[in-house]
């Protein structure tokens, strides 16, 4: 009885989550211009977006910014995480700590607005930077590094400290310890942080809206402005492509991860069995 109730809830949950996305995908193949009325099957909206320079430019700008943001966030985030985990007391640690975490809790509107004011002031004083790709990148990185730092920090905390001590014991200078032992050990979390900040940057609207200048509209901004003017199936088509890319990425990633995990577990138990046999012999 209980299990049936549970199943019902589960299905209701899935419906709530996925039906809107399914509708969106289905209507991207709609021959009619109406977003809610089915007018036959067609690929025409996909052809339209391929020739829509605003969409194409927005897409490439978004990708560029996301790539740069993810990379910068991971580098800065690693440094920040390292400082917080390894140096238990330095001047201004508490302030540093809260500054690293602040962007996670401060409303994005405020982050965006304050960055805008800051860049406007800079522009007035120094004549630069002009609002555009650079300012968006800087804005995204300012909170991307917080996410990266949190992820990397948790990995660093669980890292067996004796690994680094062993490296030092065997003759590594502090910097060698970092890139020969620490870095390979936290590589997976760096990857995770990179992917997360990449996606955060890719679909960010609020900060981007504040920091973009003329001619620097990212894809989310393009979609948003289109939606404001009245929905049109090109938006559905863009969304469908995005969903497809993400789905393939996620499924491939998790398949690979679970295979790695299984292989590791199998190797471990094999080693254990061997050990037991050796003891018996």
């Amino acid at each position: 009885m209980d299990s049936r109730l549970g199943k019902t809830w589960l299905i209701a949950g899935y419906v709530f989550l996925y039906v809107p996305i399914l509708t969106l995908i289905i209507f991207s193949f709609n021959a009619s211009k109406m977003v809610t009325l089915w007018g036959g099957f067609s690929f025409k909206w996909y052809g339209v977006i391929a020739h829509d320079s605003e969409v194409v430019n927005g897409f490439f700008l978004s990708m560029k910014i996301a790539l740069m943001t993810a990379t910068a966030s991971v580098v800065l985030g690693t440094l920040a995480a390292f400082a917080m985990v390894r140096y238990k007391s330095f001047f201004g640690r508490t302030v540093f700590f809260s500054h690293i975490n602040a962007p996670l809790v401060v409303p994005e509107v405020i982050t965006g607005l304050s960055l805008l004011l800051f860049f406007v002031m800079c522009e007035r004083l120094f004549g630069m930077p002009e609002r555009g790709m650079f300012t968006i990148w800087a804005g995204h990185t300012s909170f991307g590094l917080s996410y990266a730092a949190v992820i990397i920090q948790s990995r660093l905390l669980e890292l067996d400290k004796s690994l680094e001590e062993a490296a030092m014991d065997l003759g590594c200078r502090p910097f060698q310890v970092f890139y020969l032992v620490t870095l390979p050990m936290i590589a997976q979390s760096l990857m995770a942080a990179w992917l997360l900040t990449f996606t955060i940057s890719l679909d960010d609207v609020v900060t981007t809206a504040f920091l973009s200048g003329p001619g620097s509209s990212t894809l989310p901004l393009v979609i948003l402005s289109r939606a404001r003017l009245g929905l049109d199936p090109t938006v559905n088509a863009i969304a469908t492509i995005t969903v497809a890319v993400v789905a393939v990425g996620v499924v491939a990633g998790s398949l690979w991860m679970s295979r790695q995990e299984r292989r590791r577990a199998a190797e471990q138990s094999a080693a254990y069995r061997e050990g037991m046999q050796a003891m018996g012999a």
Binding site: D160, S162, L163, E165, A167, M168, D169, R173, M185
Partner: peptide, 27 residues
Amino acid sequence: PYERPINMMFQSYALFPHLTVWENVAF
């Protein structure tokens, strides 16, 4: 520690998980 002619075997062994047995010994 990296200049002392002293080496330590850790309680957790602290073997580098990303290196093979050979590479660990050669480290």
